[in-house]
């Protein structure tokens, strides 16, 4: 049984009870992905599976055989931070940093959802294929990631600078 983690083929020898989050953190030592609530309510554990964001705490690792998983450790390219990581530093998008890995993965997938035309609750017209990343859209789409430190202003600025066609 294998999956691919941050581009590396990884063997999975695990008890079926192991969540994807515990597999990443405890079995592989990839502790960038954080455990906040462990029940789907905070987003700290957000990772990308084949490019889509999910909560790793509500996933059994055995269900991810053959899939490709990206964690915060896999966002940089050749030692250079992802532009969104750079923007988080520039805009003070964190204080303690605990929610940051989840915020980063979530925002990257969110930008991709916008590109694919996926609507949100605040999208005014469902019949148009395009959604803009304005302030309301960004906040609604990122509502699955809580920040206990309340660094939201910096987070919103960093994400909109990186992904918005027009500033939020």
């Amino acid at each position: 049984m294998h999956c691919t983690i941050n581009g590396n083929r990884t063997e999975m020898v695990i008890d079926p009870r192991t969540s994807l989050l515990d597999f990443l953190r405890d079995h592989l030592g990839l502790t960038g992905t954080k455990k906040g609530c462990n029940q789907g309510a905070c987003g700290a554990c957000t990772v990308l599976v084949d490019g889509e964001r999910i909560n790793a705490c509500l996933a059994f690792a055995v269900q991810y055989q053959g899939r490709s998983i990206t964690t915060v450790e896999g966002l940089s390219r050749g030692g250079a931070l992802h532009p969104l990581q750079q923007a988080f530093i520039k805009h003070d998008g964190f204080q303690c940093g605990y929610c940051t890995p989840g915020q980063l993965c979530s925002a990257i997938a969110m930008a991709n959802e916008i590109e694919r035309g996926i609507p949100s609750f605040v999208t005014k017209n469902l019949s148009t294929e395009t959604a803009l990343l304005d302030h309301d859209e960004l906040r609604e789409r990122m509502s699955g990631n809580l920040c206990r430190c309340g660094a939201y202003n910096g987070i919103v600025e960093a994400i909109s600078e990186t992904f918005a066609k027009e500033p939020a």
Binding site: R53, S106, T123
Partner: peptide, 11 residues
């Protein structure tokens, strides 16, 4: 779209 979060709706 009124339910849960983007992450949860993906699963």
């Amino acid at each position: 779209l009124a339910g849960a979060s983007g992450q949860l709706r993906n699963k």
